[in-house]
Structure formats: C-alpha cells, structure tokens
Simulated scan of single mutants.
Amino acid sequence: MDIRICIDVADLPRAIAFYTEGLGLRLGRRLGDDWAELLGGGSAIDLLANAAGTAPLGASHPQRRDYGRHWTPVHLDFVVEELEPVLQRLLALGATLERPVQERRWGRMANLADPFGHGIDLLQFCGRGYDEILQPSA
C-alpha cells in the first residue's frame, strides 16, 4: 500500500517554494493549475490549491477552509540530518516556530506551522533515534 499526503494550500506557488526550498523535496509534476506533486520523501505529497472560505466537503457542509493556524490531530514530521539549517530556511519561507527547539533522549524537535496553518515538526535523531527511549543498548 502506498500513502499519499494531501495538503490544501491557498497559494500553490508559495507552497511549492516552501516545501521544495525549505525541505529539499522536488516537484514531481504539475497536475493542472491547482495540483502539484512533491517527491523526495517516503511518501508523495500532493499540494492542492483551494481558496480560503471554500467548503472542503461540498457546498452544504458547514465547515470552510481557514488557513490561519489551526489544530488538527494529524501533522507531518520531517526527519532531517541537521535541524538548524532546515529550521532557518523554513522560517525565512514563512513558517512559524511555535515553541523553542526541544532536546529529547532520542534527539531534537522543532514544532512549527507552515504558512498555511498546518502543523509540521522537524526531527533530528541521535544515537538510536526513538529506540533511545527503550532499554539501553547492550
């Protein structure tokens, strides 16, 4: 099974720049004026241009797209070799750092919002990564 990640954005060119220049993903193909496929991670990311205020589930649905910072229980984690340079690029491209970089047993983490209000995290693993939480290695 493949997983495709779909991210609604209000400004497709800005989103392409954010995710390619900031995270090193590459533009796979444009699928019309409102859809871009990004490659280079473990799963393809589809950026879907949809204007703020439009209904995501049909005109009769009460919810509307809002690109201000919003909370959802789903977010994307991007594993990077060096956290600082990626963090600085993302901030320059419009990301918001939501709390100071955290040091964890398994590595470091930066919690951000992309320019469209979506939560993203940068993870820099050290040692055995998440396995550092488990019993020490023999």
Rank of each mutant, 00 (worst) to 15 (best):
I3S: 10
R4G: 07
I5V: 15
C6T: 15
D8H: 11
D8T: 11
V9I: 09
T20Y: 04
T20C: 05
E21M: 09
L23R: 02
G24Y: 03
L25G: 04
R29N: 05
R29F: 11
R30W: 04
L31F: 12
L31S: 09
D34E: 13
D34W: 08
L39F: 05
G40M: 06
A44D: 14
I45C: 02
D46P: 00
L47A: 04
N50V: 12
A51W: 04
T54R: 11
T54A: 08
T54F: 06
A55L: 08
P56Q: 06
G58Q: 08
G58W: 06
A59S: 11
H61M: 12
H61V: 14
Q63R: 08
Q63C: 10
R65S: 02
D66Y: 02
D66W: 02
Y67E: 03
Y67A: 05
Y67I: 04
G68S: 15
T72V: 05
P73Y: 01
P73T: 03
V74L: 15
D77C: 15
F78H: 12
F78T: 07
V79P: 00
V80W: 00
E81C: 05
E81H: 07
L83D: 05
E84V: 08
L90A: 04
L91Q: 07
A92E: 09
L93H: 10
T96V: 15
P100S: 15
E103A: 14
E103Y: 02
R104S: 01
R105G: 04
A113C: 14
D114W: 01
P115F: 13
P115L: 14
P115Q: 13
F116M: 07
I120P: 00
D121E: 11
G127W: 00
R128F: 00
Y130F: 14
Y130A: 12
D131C: 03
D131L: 11
E132L: 00
E132I: 00
I133V: 11
L134D: 07
P136C: 01
S137G: 11
S137V: 12
